[in-house]
C-alpha cells in the first residue's frame, strides 16, 4: 500500500465510524418518529389513559414529568450555582477543599443511576421521611412522609443532576471577563455585590444552559425514580408533594415490559417514546445552541 493510500485508508476507516454512529442515531430517531408520529394528537397529549393504558392519552405522565423536573430544578439550581460560585469566585486556585469538591462532583457524575435510586429510597424515603413520621405522627404502620412520592423522587434527581449544573455554571463563570469583576470592585462593590450584580447576570446564559441540561437529564432518567415515587398508573393527578406520579420514561418502561397486551400497547408506546424524545432532544439542542452562542462571545 502506498503512503497516500494509507492516508486515505485511515481517513476512510475513521470516517466510517462516524457514519456508522450517525447512521444508528438516525435509525433510532427515524424509527421512533415514523411509528410515533401518527399517534400524536391533541387528545393523546391531554387525555387520561384508558383500557389498560393501551388507549387514551398520556396526560398524567406528561404532567408528572413536568412536576417532577420543576421540583428538581427548584432544588438543584440554587445548590449547583452556589457550589460553582464558591469554586470559581471564592476558593483559591490552590484550595485543597476545592480540589476535593471537584473530585466529588466528577465522581457524583459517574454514580450509576440505579444507585441513585437506592440512595433515594434509603435516604429520602426511609431515613428522612421515616424520621419525620416518627417525630410527627408516631405510627409506623401508616407512613405519611416515609413512602415514595414526587418530592423524594425530585430530590433524588436533584442530587443526580447536581454535577451537570455545577460544571456548566462554572464554565459560564469562567467566561465572564476578569475586567468586569475588577471594574465593580474598583467602584467599591463588595465581593458579594460583584458576584450578584456583575458576575451572575453575565453568566446567565450559561446558568440557563446548565438548567436545561439538568431538566433534560432529569426528565429522561427512570432508574432513580423506580423506588422513590413513580407509579404505574394513577387515577388522579398528583397534587401534593407526597403523592406518587406517572412519568413519561417510566410509562415507556411499563408499556414495553409489563403490559398485559404488548401488541395492543404498541401504538401508545411509540407515541410516548416520541414525546419523551422530542422533550429531551429539543432541550439538548437548545442547550447546545445557547452554549455555542456564549462560547463564541467568549472567543471574540
Amino acid at each position: 500500500m502506498t503512503r497516500t493510500a494509507r492516508d486515505r485508508a485511515l481517513a476512510a476507516a475513521t470516517g466510517l465510524c462516524v457514519a456508522l454512529v450517525l447512521g444508528m442515531l438516525l435509525v433510532v430517531v427515524g424509527e421512533i418518529v415514523r411509528h410515533g408520529w401518527p399517534q400524536l394528537s391533541w387528545a393523546f397529549l391531554t387525555d387520561q389513559p384508558t383500557a389498560d393504558m393501551t388507549g387514551g392519552g398520556i396526560f398524567p405522565a406528561i404532567y408528572g414529568t413536568v412536576a417532577l423536573t420543576l421540583l428538581m430544578t427548584v432544588a438543584v439550581v440554587p445548590m449547583g450555582v452556589a457550589t460553582a460560585v464558591w469554586l470559581h469566585e471564592y476558593a483559591g486556585r490552590s484550595s485543597r477543599l476545592a480540589a476535593v469538591v471537584r473530585a466529588a462532583v466528577h465522581n457524583l457524575a459517574g454514580v450509576p443511576s440505579i444507585v441513585f435510586g437506592l440512595f433515594g429510597l434509603g435516604f429520602f424515603v426511609l431515613f428522612l421521611g421515616g424520621s419525620i413520621d416518627d417525630l410527627v405522627y408516631g405510627d409506623p404502620t401508616r407512613p405519611v412522609w416515609g413512602k415514595p412520592g414526587v418530592l423524594w423522587a425530585a430530590l433524588t434527581l436533584a442530587v443526580l443532576t447536581l454535577p451537570v449544573v455545577i460544571v456548566t455554571t462554572e464554565e459560564a463563570l469562567r467566561a465572564v471577563p476578569r475586567d468586569l469583576r475588577e471594574a465593580a470592585l474598583g467602584l467599591g462593590a463588595t465581593r458579594l455585590q460583584t458576584v450578584v450584580r456583575v458576575v451572575l447576570p453575565n453568566a446567565r446564559a450559561g446558568i440557563l444552559t446548565g438548567l436545561i441540561l439538568a431538566v433534560s437529564r432529569g426528565a429522561g432518567e427512570v432508574a432513580p425514580i423506580l423506588f422513590t415515587g413513580a407509579a404505574n398508573f394513577l387515577p388522579y393527578l398528583p397534587s401534593d408533594l407526597r403523592d406518587m406520579f406517572m412519568h413519561l420514561g417510566y410509562h415507556v418502561f411499563v408499556l414495553a415490559t409489563q403490559s398485559p397486551n404488548v401488541e395492543a400497547a404498541r401504538p401508545a408506546l411509540y407515541g410516548t417514546v416520541l414525546v419523551l424524545l422530542v422533550l429531551t432532544l429539543s432541550l439538548n439542542v437548545a442547550a447546545v445552541w445557547l452554549r455555542s452562542r456564549y462560547r463564541a462571545a467568549l472567543r471574540s
Binding site: L10, A11, T14, G15, V18, V21, L22, L25, V28, E31, I32, S113, S216, R217, A219, G220, E221, V222, A223, G249, Y250, V252, F253, A256, T257, L269, V273, L276, L277, T280, L281, N284, V285, V288, S292
Partner: peptide, 30 residues
Amino acid sequence: YASRRVREIVKPVIELLASLPSVVLGFFAL
C-alpha cells in the same frame, strides 16, 4: 481529519446521542 465545519456539526450530534434517555434505547432494543 474533519474540516472545521464538519467538526462543528458532527461533534455536537454525537454528544446529542448521550442525551438519549436510556429507556428510549432500551425500548428501541426491545
